Amino acid sequence: MPTRPHLLYAHRARHSRLAAALSCLLAVCMLAGCAAPRIAGRAESEQRLSPCESAVEAASAGTERAMSADSPITMRYVAAKQAQHDWLDVAVQCPLRFAEGTMRSAQMQYRTQQLARVLGANSKTLTVTRLDSVASVPIGGDALAQAALADDRAGFATEVLAGRFVSGVARDARTTPLAEDGTLLAMSENHKQAASQMMQLSNGARDLRQKLYGTDELLAHSANVTDPVNGLRANTVAVVEMSCAREEMQAIAQSTRTMELPDDANAVQQAQQGLLQLSLLAATHAYTAFNLGYPSSDYAVFAADDE
């Protein structure tokens, strides 16, 4: 069958245009210099995230899902439950973000329990009240002494409050049951024991604990008190716990900024485990404060960072 002249012309014209385009592209490459061929795997290795970056990325994404009103409640619960662990990973892996990782883990622990109650689920908390299993920590002795002071002061305050509520001198819907069933005294003992354990881990640092502290505020405002950090009025025990959490995190964070991990893999693992327990201890104080009515929102818990 003979080829139609106009089809043959169109076919030849398309080839001519393609050849011209290729010629132009070759000329541009010769003048400007085309990029070198890509080496397989190079871009991937250059973009590989550090352990700290990976932890922050995972924790931030999980928190966003946990707080999203557009997600089903089951998905929010699962996200919050994972995020509470991921933020602890941030506290351990990121020397400059210990305090943030610890506090955000406490927020996600509280969020997890809120959602669990709605779902009727039984979710175990991550709380740690003592350092019984810790053999060493990669934290300076002076920082541990400061953290021990915070825990010892909280132990004294909760003991004083327990006495006032048990004796009936003070009454409050949140605090009274804690005093009557012995919870408040148990909290006091745990604070004091944690402080003692920190000093044992401090390698002979100067002990700053005073054992006895001022009681004016506790006696005058046993039920509710104003947090001097942000001006919020909240349950007195909650403010005691939040103040302890803040002081511990600040003391430890000062040390983690210059922290040097050992070279031995086993020693590194032991050091990170110790740091994790310190993070959990401070997060437990903050989580306890949330349960007693202290606001868990950023405006309340990160107020000191904005000053």
Rank of each mutant, 00 (worst) to 15 (best):
K81I: 03
Q84A: 13
W87S: 02
D89R: 15
D89P: 05
A91G: 06
V92P: 02
V92E: 00
V92K: 08
V92M: 04
V92I: 14
P95H: 03
F98S: 02
A99R: 15
E100N: 09
G101T: 07
T102W: 00
T102P: 01
M103C: 07
M103Y: 04
R104G: 05
S105P: 08
Q107W: 05
Q107N: 02
M108V: 00
Y110M: 11
T112L: 14
Q114K: 09
A116Q: 13
A116N: 12
G120A: 12
G120D: 12
A121W: 06
A121L: 13
N122A: 15
N122D: 14
K124F: 04
K124C: 07
K124D: 06
T125Y: 01
L126P: 00
L126T: 00
T127A: 14
T127I: 09
T129W: 11
T129K: 10
T129L: 11
L131H: 11
L131M: 10
S133Y: 02
V134S: 06
V134L: 02
V134R: 00
V137G: 03
V137K: 06
P138A: 02
I139Y: 03
I139K: 04
G140A: 06
G141R: 03
G141M: 01
D142L: 00
A143K: 06
A143I: 08
L144I: 01
A148G: 10
A150K: 03
D151Q: 14
D151Y: 13
D152A: 08
A154Y: 05
G155N: 06
A157L: 08
T158H: 11
V160A: 13
L161Q: 04
G163R: 01
R164P: 00
F165C: 04
V166C: 04
S167W: 10
R171I: 09
R171P: 04
R171G: 01
A173M: 01
T176F: 10
T176G: 08
P177C: 08
L178V: 10
